[in-house]
Design a binder for these strands. Structure first.
Lengths: 341, 341
DNA sequence: TTGTAAGCGTTATCAG
DNA sequence: CTGATAACGCTTACAA
């Protein structure tokens, strides 16, 4: 069976309206360059045929796609959802379309995704965090693809970023924990290799420990993938030590919720027996029992600002300008003083 | 400042390798049609230039994109994440790329997204649920875009679907609730307009109520958007009745978790004071306190099967075949007999 | 096995 | 304000 009819083209519209393809194209893209009468005739033809412009052809001729690509580590939990939602809303406002893909926290997959998006003609790219093979940045620059990093702010990085200071934010939380009297501290981190957010959060905890004259042996760090299950596993492992920590800082809310859940299964009271903190302040943090004390990240603002900056870069052919956003600690119920205070 | 160099084209590669563009194209797409010596020469040229094919040009010439589009109602919670992940993995296996966008449960936005994906040349489309303007299906058919529905199985729908029987699944859960002795039942549903999953789940509860000779006045139904907050709000509203339900069935796990959370805030014991059930069996359901009794949906299997079917449709130019997947009730802690039994 | 050349559906330049 | 027409980069008959 043959295809009944194939999609109408500009030419079909032009013929039906009795004008040239150029005029139809103008009606669609620069309506004010065409007199009303013609414009209306063309519009009826478009409607009659159900014409829809062919994206690939348009891209070839115009040499831009008005498309921004974003590669996030995962769609499986809400960590990136809210920021990306705001990012895409703002882009939409400015006439850009967002293409999203996820890398499963795997640098090789990320690189492949970048390639795919570039091949598809993304005019700009949003990447999460700074840590990746420098060759990628060179490639992107050579192809003059505007690129911006989010979720991490590093003022002296080779590429502009809209984000926050992961290290200081985590250090502040750790200071608060120590201030409450905790002396034996655990940290459940995501895998830090190739992940500056994870790496810097670890550094932040170390900073606080050092500053408070605790010995490094008072701090136990475990790295594990960012899934609820892993948070739970890491928690039980950590609590099985002969002298377990009285407070456990988690690299994000997802790990923290896993830890919380396992604590409950182990009949440990939080924060009476052990304190647990998160990072991100996603919805899950409020819903958890007890509600998580965590670091609030202004996800929506970050997404919106990143979009605006990327659009600016695209329209001005300019290079990006970094911006730092403020985070703050949200104290809820999962952090308290250690037992016996 | 001018663009330093623009991306290398097939022509550049051909010249450097001393062959025609046709040969380069063959090396890339049908390597075995080219002798090894030539192939290697071309490969070095490709590497030397860092050549990367231009997607738009390829699409124009080949008239297919090897791209599948999917429009899901939301990325903001995990309901669709797992299924989509499996969907994309399977597609990748078969050489297809997935483009995802979300509609925020808004039919108009969904229609716009469909248009966008079609304009971008999606060879096939995955849609969630059957309920939408029939004109959309006609359009898709006219453009001969293979389309499949998931998350809902309706054998006699005009379009093939890989999914489950929302109505029966929910009826079974409701039967179980009634069997436990509940006589006053509440349902917190998503907005059913334009959402057959929501609509059918409501029907399922009604079926069970009717079957058990309960009066329709024993069933209270509230429709609300699918967000945690809304679940919480609906719950308190429902419990403020003079004779509140002893069991509340929620349209999905997200609403149920919201209800659960509010119950806790209201110092109501679940399931002692009131039972709450979910639907979907996402991770959240296991983590919630108490863990949610819910309907397990084989998300990964559904995603995988949908991908396979869509690929089949594409390669055989064939029409789709529907498939029904089994669901089952997962009994955890949030459902129990009513107080005083 | 390889080369030639005709499209693919737009946009944009340049005349009119 | 409108019309010709030349790109855009690649695939794919068809020829050699």
């Amino acid at each position: 069976m043959s295809k009944l009819r194939s999609a109408p083209t500009l030419d079909d519209v032009a013929k039906l309206a009795g004008v040239s393809t150029a005029t139809v194209s103008r009606c669609l893209n620069n309506p004010d360059q065409v007199v009303k009468a013609t414009r209306e005739r063309v519009q009826s033809a478009v409607d009659a045929l159900g014409y829809m412009p062919n994206f690939a052809a348009r891209v070839m001729a115009a040499k831009r796609t008005s498309t921004i690509g974003a590669i996030i580590p995962t769609m499986e939990n809400a960590i990136f959802a809210r920021g990306l939602q705001a990012f895409q809303e703002e882009l939409h406002q400015h006439g850009y379309t967002l293409l999203v893909s996820s890398s499963a926290y795997n640098p090789e997959i990320e690189e492949e995704q970048i390639r795919t998006l570039v091949a598809r003609g993304a005019d700009g790219l949003l990447l999460i965090g700074h840590d990746r093979n420098p060759r990628i940045y060179e490639d992107l620059e050579r192809r003059s693809i505007s690129t911006l990093v989010a979720w991490s702010y590093l003022p002296d990085a080779q590429i502009a970023s809209i984000g926050f200071d992961n290290r200081t934010a985590m250090a502040e939380l750790a200071n608060r924990v120590i201030e409450l009297g905790h002396r034996k501290i655990g940290m459940i981190s995501g895998i830090s290799a190739g992940n500056d957010r994870a790496r810097l959060r670890i550094e932040g905890v170390k900073d606080a420990v050092k500053q408070s004259n605790l010995s490094t042996s008072d701090l136990t760090i475990v790295e594990t993938p960012y899934e609820i299950e892993n948070g739970a596993e890491a928690f039980s492992k950590m609590m099985s030590h002969t002298k377990p920590p009285t407070a456990i800082l988690c690299g994000n809310d997802v790990l923290a919720v896993g830890a919380l859940h396992r604590a409950q299964e182990m009949k440990l009271q939080v924060p009476k027996d052990v304190s647990i903190t998160g990072f991100d302040d996603i919805e899950l943090a409020r819903i958890a029992t007890p509600a998580l004390t965590t670091v609030h990240v202004p996800h929506r603002e970050m997404g919106r600002k990143a979009a605006l900056e990327l659009v600016r870069m695209l329209e001005n052919q300019g290079t990006g300008t970094s911006a730092q956003l403020a985070t703050h600690i949200v104290e809820r119920q999962s952090l308290g003083p250690p037992a016996g205070t």
